[in-house]
């Protein structure tokens, strides 16, 4: 790869990475706060959303998936999607989500 495409391929500066890290740290703080503060009915959904946001941010920015070839995205999310599908189905047959 020539140097001119380098910047395009990994389109983030170090300052950008630090910004992402600060956001991640803030979300983590919010997550931990659910342990001390009662979120009521919002507890589960908010935790799940925060988890997913953190996951996607690390994968998209730190792992460059957002800037890289779509083939990588396809390979990784195929694995992730299959994992979600088979394991959630399996847990459902154990009536995991009913109780």
């Amino acid at each position: 790869m020539s140097t001119s495409t380098e910047q395009h391929e990994h389109g983030m500066t170090d300052a950008g990475y630090i910004k992402i890290a600060i956001i991640l740290a803030a979300i983590t703080a919010l997550e931990v706060s659910t342990y001390y503060v009662d979120f009521g009915p919002l507890f589960m959904p908010s935790l799940m959303i925060m988890m997913v946001v953190k996951f996607v941010m690390v994968v998209s920015y730190f792992m460059h998936l957002k800037f890289d070839s779509k083939i990588f995205t396809f390979l990784f999310y195929t694995g992730l999607g299959l994992a979600l599908f088979v394991y959630i189905t399996a847990l459902a047959t154990f009536k995991f989500f009913i109780s």
């Binding site: 390979l75 999310y77 694995g79 992730l80 994992a83 979600l84 088979v86």
Partner: peptide
Amino acid sequence: LGSECLLFGG
């Protein structure tokens, strides 16, 4: 890494 998703998923 795609494969590892299914390992940790399990």
